[in-house]
């Protein structure tokens, strides 16, 4: 009658979990597994393979590895992730350090601005940067003009740089908040001791702060890698252009699967590759979580 506990019988517990597990199974777990299957077919959005597709085994994977655009998108993704990592973790740590021990308006103001950049919808942020970086009217070029510099077409001159800076701007808040919390947990007496010994700012940073918040730094880096690798918003900003120069892997996947003839099977094969990369990163992350 009460199997499994008085508060919640096993049967009831199962019923409670059922709706959530059903949604997760159908719309999260199943698609991931199905991706592998679709990736082995030549399914397409249009044309004859739209209706009856065939099993092509590893053709899609071979094609992907032969496609120069795949390689270039991997490279761009790598640069994008690495740049964003340095930008976000660096700025986040810098902000957290500068704002630690500060109180009142200044801290509120700075952290709120950084957080708002994070929570505002991606589409809006993308167009803010379209406006900010516009060659003829953008605020950045106007300011540079006033300072006597020539106008720059940022999207052409520094395509990957643009999406890195855009993504850094958007995502720094996470690292900042994480590091702020980490710094808060360092007992003030540690840093005071350092003051008494007469450690310089840099030594304090290197010998005390960094070792103490190392777990958070590692967490931050691995999560940022995973998330940045799975970001789509640069698409709104540049559509992968000019000339595919900002076509990170997600945008490449989108182009292959949904543009032109819509090579769904090919896209699914690339999805499978992304899933594998994500899986590797997630396993590292979970291992770190467990160790804590």
């Amino acid at each position: 009658m009460f199997e499994g506990g008085i508060i919640l019988s096993k049967k009831r517990a199962f019923l409670f979990m059922l709706p959530a597990l059903a949604f997760v199974a159908v719309f999260l777990i199943f698609p991931a597994i199905w991706a592998i299957y679709i990736g082995l077919t030549n399914e397409a959005l249009t044309g004859i393979y739209g209706l009856n597709h065939q099993f092509v085994w590893f053709d899609n994977f071979i094609k992907a590895f032969k496609d120069p655009w795949f390689h270039s998108s991997l490279q761009i993704s790598f640069k994008f992730v690495f740049g964003s990592l340095v930008g976000q973790a660096g700025l986040g740590l810098l902000l957290a350090l500068l704002l630690n021990n500060k109180k009142g308006i200044l801290k509120e103001l700075v952290s709120n601005i950084v957080i708002i950049a994070w929570i505002v919808p991606g589409v809006v942020v993308a167009y803010l940067w379209v406006a900010f970086l516009d060659k003829d009217f953008g605020l950045l070029n106007s300011i540079l003009g006033i300072l006597g510099f020539a106008r720059v077409n940022w999207f052409r001159t520094l395509p990957v740089g643009v999406i890195i800076i855009f993504n850094t701007w958007r995502g720094t808040a996470f690292s900042m908040l994480l590091f702020m919390a980490a710094l808060q947990s360092i007992p003030p007496s540690y840093l005071e001791t350092a003051d008494v010994i007469g450690a310089s700012g840099w030594r304090k940073f290197r010998d005390i702060i960094i070792p103490l918040i190392k777990p958070q730094i590692l967490t931050d880096l691995i999560l940022l890698t995973l998330w940045t690798f799975n970001v789509f918003t640069p698409f709104i900003l540049t559509k992968g252009g000019p000339a595919h120069m900002t076509e990170i892997l997600p945008i490449y996947t989108y182009r292959v699967a949904f543009m032109g003839t819509g090579r769904i099977g090919q896209g699914a094969a690339i999805s499978t590759i992304i899933l594998l990369i994500n899986l590797t990163l997630a396993l590292i992350y979970l291992k770190m979580l467990k160790r804590k």
């Binding site: 698609p31 799975n230 949904f258 769904i264 999805s271």
Partner: peptide, 8 residues
């Protein structure tokens, strides 16, 4: 991102 194709 990883699931956009199968989700579609």
């Amino acid at each position: 991102i990883a699931a956009m194709v199968p989700l579609f």
